[in-house]
Amino acid sequence: MRLDNIGFHYGKEWSLMGIDLSLRSGEILGILGPNGSGKSTLLKIMDGIINPIEGEISIDNRPFRDIKRSEFARQVAMVAQENHFRFSFTAAEVALMGRYPHLRRLQFEGIRDMEIAFNALKSTQTLHLADRSIHDLSEGEKQRVFIARALAQEPRIILLDEPTSFLDLKFKREIFMLISTLCREKDISVALVSHDIDLTAQYCHRVVMLKNGQVHAEGPPDEVITVANIEKVYECPVTVDMNPTSGRPRVSII
């Protein structure tokens, strides 16, 4: 996926300006930045939910506007930060919704679709929740069911908006391990927005740091996550040392 000189504004002020970015196959791209820096807007543009006002965004050199929504959903899946279900669906039904872009209008899910959804639930460790209503799950369980739904789409790219915000340590680790495995084994590309700089540093291949809707720094975690960049972007004094196990940068607030 390539983004060329992307610009977008909601009101008068530009919330994104001159963003050049690419997402390569099999990589995990972390998008960092303070509140209001344009992270979520960028993710929505990458998901084709909002169209950029300036610039062009494409997959395999095909501009987004030439791709039908259903075809797009077979390529790109999104795990939103929050989902509000008004009506009760079971976790199994939610995972199966991921098969929507693969089915024709009056087609029911076949055995293969069920297997895919089943395996998606298994890999996010939510199979035991399959028959429970989404309303009765904890935030962390919901989050994992939505990741299962994204997996059931069998996309090439998965976008995640704060995937671990509701999760405890164990599941934070598991979600990131799962993401890493997917990238390695299935060649899926992942772009994720996060407030957790340490986890982003630890698991992402590349990091983009946004400030006021512009790319402040981009590159491998150890080049981007530096005291100078963070103090400038987040306006917060920090020290950065090395995580002894991963060898990646680790941030502490002073």
Binding site: R69, A73, R74, M78, A80, R86, F89, M97, Y100, R105
Partner: peptide, 22 residues
């Protein structure tokens, strides 16, 4: 015939668009 689309629309319009619903 719109049943499955409606299922997904009940979960939110943005959500539905993400899953490929027009």
């Amino acid at each position: 015939a719109f049943s499955r689309d409606l299922n997904i629309i009940t979960t939110g319009e943005e959500n539905a668009a993400q899953l490929g619903v027009e």
